[in-house]
Write a protein that binds this DNA or RNA. Structure first.
Lengths: 199, 199
DNA sequence: GTCTATACCCAGATAGAC
DNA sequence: GTCTATCTGGGTATAGAC
């Protein structure tokens, strides 16, 4: 009765463009932050007009969320591919991540600013961050539990508390580091890890 | 209530007004956050015009900074006056503070948002927060050191690291709590304190 | 080659900063 | 009021399934 559509999916060119835009946007947002960045600049870097860019990401917000997700997956990839030694605990993973972050103050600033703003329930990134914390808490808690099971992590402590502490430590230290770059985040997290070890 | 037949002079009245404005501003900022608040609303609450208000605080920024400082001193007062038992450690002080904060989500949100924004070196609150972290780190470190000296706090760990961890935990948990109010910040800080105790 | 979803641009509308 | 940034409506060109 009605005209049937044939969704054809993006062309190869479109897929490449999308990835290209994401990379450029990640750079721009990392350099200039959320507020300091414009679609114009991102469009310029990939040689598109603004409407051309918005064809792939319906709005600026959508692009920003895609960038946040991309950064998370890049981070995860980095943890698994870049490491010669295997990660033995959640705490070690955080130390490695933080070492990596210390080379990218722009991205750290972006995340700190956004996670604070996304605290507001109707912020466009609220769902992203709420879900991110849920997910990270869950996997970190699992890591703590297995650590307790194999005797490396201190027992008799609520593993979810340990997980949330590790995440809080990581977030909180980033603020302190941004305020004063001489703060050695990695060393302090390592101290925290020692507190979590079983003696 | 108090029958003031004789005016005590503008100086005293000014001091009262100043305090009155501060209280109103604290309320407004706590309810609506930094951006959501206007000088107009604060002026209305104390029955002043905006220029009248600016007579006491030269600018909106100045007023905001005064509010932040006042909140810090109120917090400190609360720690000493409201307590039946004396505080025995920095960690306990943080637990009490956090319990108190859980009744004031607006202020917590204000602090989280501002400390993130103040990360930018030219933000008008940068100096305030940078100094605040320096000061808190110093006194918390001293608390940890005395804890180590009297045997309650685990030794063999860098006391400044412990101090920065406690501050990071407190800040980081506030974000998690704002994202998900079921997070029991106080209990988690208590878990952290156990990690810091000597066995 | 036909045909249509996709890729992209132009010229405003609109909102906000300065 | 000017400038800048996001986003929309209305179009043309092209890729790719058939």
């Amino acid at each position: 009765m009605s005209t049937q559509r044939k969704p054809r999916g993006p062309y190869r060119k479109g897929i490449q463009r999308r990835a290209q835009i994401l990379d450029a946007a990640l750079e721009v947002f990392a350099e200039q932050g959320d507020r300091g960045s414009s679609l114009q600049e991102i469009a310029d870097r990939v040689g598109l007009s603004i409407p051309g860019l918005l064809h792939y990401f319906g709005s600026r917000e959508e692009l920003l969320l895609a960038v946040l997700e991309r950064r998370d997956t890049l981070e995860t990839d980095h943890l698994t591919t870049d490491g010669e030694g295997k990660i033995t605990s959640a705490g070690e993973a955080v130390v490695r991540t933080i070492r990596h972050n210390m080379d990218q103050p722009g991205l750290v600033k972006l995340f700190v600013a956004l996670s604070a703003a996304a605290t507001e329930p109707d912020h466009h990134a609220h769902a992203f961050f709420a879900d991110r914390y849920r997910r990270l808490t869950e996997t970190t808690k699992a890591g703590m539990e297995s650590g307790q099971a194999n005797g490396t992590t201190r027992t008799g402590v609520n593993p979810e508390h340990l997980a949330r502490l590790l995440l809080a430590v990581s977030d909180g230290l980033q603020v302190q580091w941004l305020m004063d770059p001489t703060v050695d985040m990695a060393a302090i997290v390592e101290t925290f890890n020692r507190l979590c070890e079983s003696e």
